[in-house]
Structures are given as structure tokens and as C-alpha cells.
């Protein structure tokens, strides 16, 4: 700061990006995923067959598709609890359209459009009225599913066209399912959106400090609204995939999924309070959850036990960095 020293130029960074990536959360997750993969392949002789692995992907791709958009929403400091409710209403609307003789493209459009409308409804309540998103979406969670209960009662829509089955049951090549390819494609799109565009940067800024972001010219409400819409559309896409896979619509469809989606996001290293996290982490977390549930399924572990293990896994992985730090401090002393 003194006058006689020349003005200095700051270095861009101290650590190389490669080194930073090595010590990042996704790297740790990747190690966990590989460990689970190896354990699974020893635990069950059926695990390593291509078809078994392909089946495993169906366990998580639909939820993971929503998790991609949810990750962005949570980074921005908001949340959407109503995604499973959106699946229910989207699927129901597709069923209604089916009754009017809609063809496959129309069904897909109806599913995604319903999702978009629901997301926009959430987004408008949050950004226009300034209500907290957790309250709004707990409300709309019941609202959306309630509507499908009113329309369907204890009935179910069946008889979706043959061509519609492709989305949830079709294979693109050999054992590679359409769902899986779609998920990977969307993951790439969301990776670019979050990490490579201005829009993604705005999301981080908003999640860290919405006021400073607004004061820096970021249109905070608009960005958040778009994120709610994206989450709605992704729930609509998940509704198309799930309805197609099941071949029917019941009002209880996808019940409880919101927690699994949020678990994926949190396990993926996204700060539940907003501001940090990556798509890579979310994608790996989705694989981890898929591998664990599928592995346990092969071992005939009942569903209740499975959810206990998933819960323990979540807490364990989240606590891992803290535990490692404590261990390191202990060793230093």
C-alpha cells in the first residue's frame, strides 16, 4: 500500500486446478462409488452381468433426472418438495389425455407441460409473493397429488400405446436403455448450464448472497423462477419415463420420491443452505444410490432395511470429511 512499491498483479490461483479437483468432494464420492461397486461384485455373482447392471440403472435414473434440476435450485438457496406431487399430477394428466385419444407425442408434451405449469406455479408463489419455498412446496406437494386423487380416486389409467412404452422400457443399443442415455445427456446439459454459463454463475452468486447478487445486477427473481420451471419440467420428464415404464397411472405414483431426490443432491455435496456444489457430485451420488439399492436388492434385503442403510450411508458420507480431519488432527498431536 505504500507509494514506493510498484503496483502488484495478483496470481490467478495458488493451487493448480488439477490438485483442487483431486481434493474435491466429487473425487471422494467417486472413490466411495468404486468401493461400493467392488463390494457388490464380490457380494453377488449376478452383479457383474451387463443386463443386471443395465437393470440397476432403472433404479435411479428417473429420480436422478429430477436431482439435476433440484441441485441447481438448492444451490440458489431454494428447494422444491413438491416434485413427487408433480409426477403424480403429470402422470394423471397424461392419463386424461389418453382418454381423449392422444397419441404418443401428445402424451409426452402433456406430461412435460403439466410439469412446467406446476413449476411455474411454485416459482410464482416464491418469487412474486416472496414466500419461503419450503413452505410453498410442502403445500403444493399435497395440492398436486390431491388433484390426481380427485381425478382418479382408486382407479388407474391403463392402456398406454405401444410406442409410448419405449421411453421407460426401450433400449437404444444392446443393454443401454433410453432412460440411461437420456439421463447422461441431461447431466451433460446441466453440467454445462451450471458450470460453463453466466446463468450458472448467477445461481452460485444468488445462493451465497442474494442481496449482493441483486446489487450486482443479477435478476434474482427471474433466475429463481426459471429454476423452479426447470425443476417442474424435469419432474414432468420423470413422470413420462415412470408412466411409460409402469404402463399405468395411479395417484400414489412416485410417493416419497422427493426425499430420495433431495438425498441424492445432498449426498452429491450440494450445500443444503445453498451456494456450493457440483453436477458431477450429484451424478456420482445418483450412481451410488442406484448401486447400493440394486446390490442390496440382489442380496434380498427388504425395503425397510434398505432405507435404513441409505440413511446411514448419507450421514456417513457427509460426515466423512469431518471425520478424516479429526483423524488427521489426532495423528498430528
Amino acid at each position: 500500500m505504500s507509494d514506493n512499491t510498484p503496483k502488484r498483479t495478483l496470481p490467478d490461483r495458488l493451487d493448480s486446478p488439477l490438485k483442487a479437483a483431486f481434493y474435491s468432494w466429487p473425487s471422494l464420492l467417486l472413490a466411495v462409488a468404486i468401493a461400493i461397486f467392488i463390494i457388490n461384485s464380490f457380494a453377488s455373482p449376478y452383479f457383474l452381468s451387463p443386463w443386471a447392471l443395465s437393470d440397476a440403472t432403472f433404479n435411479f435414473t428417473e429420480k436422478a433426472v429430477i436431482a439435476l434440476a433440484m441441485a441447481l435450485l438448492i444451490i440458489s438457496g431454494e428447494i422444491d418438495i413438491s416434485v413427487a406431487g408433480i409426477i403424480a399430477i403429470s402422470s394423471t394428466m397424461m392419463g386424461v389425455a389418453l382418454q381423449f385419444g392422444a397419441d404418443t407425442p401428445t402424451l409426452v408434451a402433456v406430461g412435460m407441460l403439466t410439469g412446467l405449469i406446476c413449476g411455474a406455479f411454485n416459482g410464482a408463489l416464491v418469487t412474486k409473493l416472496g414466500l419461503p419455498s419450503i413452505v410453498v412446496t410442502i403445500g403444493t406437494m399435497s395440492l398436486f397429488r390431491g388433484i390426481s386423487f380427485i381425478i382418479l380416486g382408486d382407479q388407474a389409467y391403463k392402456g398406454y400405446p405401444e410406442s409410448f412404452a419405449f421411453f421407460g422400457q426401450g433400449y437404444v443399443y444392446w443393454v443401454i436403455s433410453f432412460e440411461f442415455v437420456l439421463f447422461l445427456g441431461l447431466a451433460l446439459v446441466y453440467y454445462i448450464l451450471l458450470h460453463k454459463t453466466n446463468f450458472g454463475r448467477y445461481i452460485y452468486a444468488i445462493g451465497n448472497n442474494p442481496i449482493a447478487a441483486q446489487f450486482s445486477g443479477v435478476r434474482v427473481a427471474r433466475v429463481k423462477f426459471v429454476l423452479f420451471c426447470l425443476t417442474g419440467i424435469m419432474a414432468g420428464v420423470a413422470a413420462v419415463l415412470l408412466t411409460s415404464r409402469l404402463g399405468s397411472t395411479r395417484p400414489s405414483i412416485a410417493r416419497g420420491w422427493e426425499l430420495e431426490v433431495i438425498t441424492m443432491v445432498v449426498l452429491g455435496g450440494i450445500n443444503i443452505l445453498g451456494g456450493s456444489g457440483t453436477i458431477q457430485g450429484t451424478v456420482i451420488a445418483a450412481f451410488i444410490m442406484g448401486l447400493v439399492t440394486f446390490g442390496l436388492g440382489l442380496l434380498n434385503v427388504p425395503g425397510i432395511v434398505m432405507s435404513i442403510i441409505i440413511g446411514a450411508l448419507l450421514i456417513g458420507v457427509i460426515a466423512l470429511p469431518t471425520l478424516l480431519n479429526m483423524l488427521r488432527d489426532r495423528l498430528k498431536q
Partner: peptide, 29 residues
């Protein structure tokens, strides 16, 4: 602290935040 800087963001991203349109090409960072 509350209105000026985004405290958890690196310095360079704070500086570029209002100018992202200029430093990016077609909205890509």
C-alpha cells in the same frame, strides 16, 4: 459484507459478476 461482495465467491468472480456479458461469449463463461 452483506450488499457489496459475495463473500464465499473468489475475488475474480466477484469482480466479473456484473460484467459477465462482456467476459463471456454467447453466455458461455
Amino acid at each position: 459484507g452483506t450488499q457489496g461482495v459475495v463473500t464465499d465467491m473468489p475475488i475474480f468472480q466477484n469482480v466479473s459478476l456484473p460484467s459477465l456479458r462482456k467476459t463471456s461469449r454467447g453466455n458461455f463463461i
